[in-house]
Amino acid sequence: MSASENVAIPATIPQAVPVRRGMPAWQVALVVLGGLVVAIAPAFVLESFPLFQLTMAVIMGLAVLGLNMVTGFSGQISLGHGAFFALGAYATAILMSHLDWSFWATLPVSAVVCGLVGYGIGFPALRLGGLYLALTTFSLAVAVPQILKHKSIEDWTGGVQGLFLVKPDAPSWLPVALTPDQWMYFVAVAVAGICFLLCWNLIRGRIGRALMATRDHQTAAEAMGMDTATLKTRAFAVSAMVTGIAGSLSAVAVEFVAPDSFSLMVSITLFVGMVVGGVASILGSLFGGLFVLFVPNIAEAISKAAPGVIYGILLIAFLFILPDGFAGLLRRVAGRLRGRG
């Protein structure tokens, strides 16, 4: 009002001006609402098998997100994330079948276990640059089924036979009666949604920028005062945690875990999903999940070997033509449209 009030604010203190780039609030609300509809509708539209597939696609997307956190954003190439996927799945399976825990109770345990193991693996990973880390994690991925089959832990893991689980039933307090398949879908979407939101929050903030700076130029990042070792090991922990949670979800969604379902192919699938979806892209991880679930199904109609061949060809094609993946393509298309409009 009066001039003296304005003067009272020292010019040196920056004011918190809400800067909104891009969309106004009503558009944001519309996008959120649309997203919710897209997320909820399939549960009531799809038959139970396609719904199960969609559930698995969401779960794979979450696992790819985990891989993206360490390989995409932190630049540490991992070809062994199937190991964390297996660890999460087995953590949940063992707690549910041996100790009769409820599924929800096993999630935090699985997250903590995978996070700790990932943190532990992050330390030797610090000493191994690029290719060596890829090599080591590759051998980890090859060794996983053998370790799971080993006799000394057979009492817990069920050995070659694996463990059977039962999907949790939908709680009775819900207004609509849901089948276990529908409920499982919502559980997967909700858990994945929370994880995506948390990762997005982590990446767009201070820590995310520090991670990417470390990835792009470690020496410069160190010179700027970033603790690159801590950043990298913690990125590994977060990554393992997210992929482990995806593993837990997959264990209950499939209702079965066995050593041979966690072969090298799982790790490679996650890697393919990451490249195709978009390296260092949060939303791209979801595309990756959809891709790795639905493309092999289509390809399998041709031959048993076809999914692998098509994976390989598409992987190389993407690296050559679209190195920033599907998400990069969308970004470019959107950019061009905006430029014209």
Partner: peptide, 20 residues
């Protein structure tokens, strides 16, 4: 990362073609 990706792609193509 691109090199590793090409190697993995090659592994998938050659390995599965052999089986096919």
């Amino acid at each position: 990362l691109t090199h590793v990706g090409v190697f993995i792609g090659l592994l998938l193509i050659v390995g599965n073609m052999t089986g096919w």
